[in-house]
Design a protein around this nucleic acid. Structure first.
Ligand code: SF4
Ligand code: SF4
Lengths: 143, 143
DNA sequence: ATCAAATCAGATATTTTTATCTGATTAAAG
DNA sequence: CTTTAATCAGATAAAAATATCTGATTTGAT
């Protein structure tokens, strides 16, 4: 089973939250992120590379290189990470796994699942990651 | 990515809903379920076997054998299928994938995700599958 | 008795996800 | 210029999820 998002996506969200919390213009290495968030080093490294390809973060090579947000935290939302890694299809698909999905042929849990799905989407869309900074730092302090 | 539940679990929910909708004491073969719900035959067969092991449905072997609910549809809920196949851990875990989870160290989306998770649980828990019968039939007619 | 149609258990295969390895490149610092 | 610490791309490995196969057993109908 999974909890909505793939590991890649979860780690990606954690990492970008960490970058936002950590940022004062500084570059953060994959190694640091790996240690703080307890994510396998090479794995998070690959995820960071893909987020860079998506334009959410940028990177510098060489000694004292690392990663940083590609734009202000006030302009990045968690949904951006989801879109970049897992894609947004889940917000159009049925929780019961039925293929067809239309208002005229709702699945049996349509009435309750529909609104929940929308709320989940809103949760990822409404707040920019700078707003989540404090809570991220508090959370990380407990890892 | 996944949409909360594994394929096995989605198929299991579909199958048990179909059994509830189809039931007039009749036995339903794995082949019929496979064809109606468009699920690979051998795969749904395995899933049905595991639901039988869990005591949710019962089966008869031999010609004109098949599956039926082990108890009245009014006493089965979708959460039973989730518990039997995927387990209930998702309702205790973090949408961002953080390991530790406690009210004192909430993850950054705690305030919004917590209630949503509870609502999702409620959705699967509040209605018994006989209540979903009509909508299931309508849904299936469109496959 | 034989046949046909079904479940059943266990093995196997395929695909996807998760994770690691290898070696190349880059750039700062000594 | 050499060392060191980092990203990078591509290949590979390991694990989990998804799907199929194989042959045995059961049971109703012919
Ligand atoms: S919950 Fe409603 S909208 Fe979503 S797939 Fe089912 S029928 Fe379609
Ligand atoms: S959402 Fe809240 S309860 Fe759930 S894991 Fe995050 S902190 Fe814990």
């Amino acid at each position: 089973m999974t909890v909505i998002f793939s590991k890649k996506c979860e780690y990606g969200m954690q990492a970008i939250l960490y970058l936002a919390a950590r940022e004062k213009g500084t570059l953060v290495s994959a190694d640091e992120i790996s240690k703080v968030l307890k994510i396998p080093r090479e794995f998070v490294s690959k995820i960071l590379q893909s987020l860079r390809d998506s334009g959410l973060i940028s990177s510098s090579k060489g000694k004292s290189g690392g990663f940083s947000l590609a734009k202000p935290a006030s302009r990045i939302k968690l949904i951006d990470v989801v879109a970049a890694i897992d894609g947004l299809e889940m917000f159009d698909s049925c929780v019961l796994g039925f293929q067809e999905c239309s208002p005229t042929h709702p699945c049996p849990v349509h009435n309750t699942w529909g609104p929940l799905r929308t709320q989940t989407y809103d949760m990822l869309t409404s707040e920019t990651i700078d707003k989540l900074k404090e809570k991220t730092l508090h959370k990380i302090s407990s890892l």
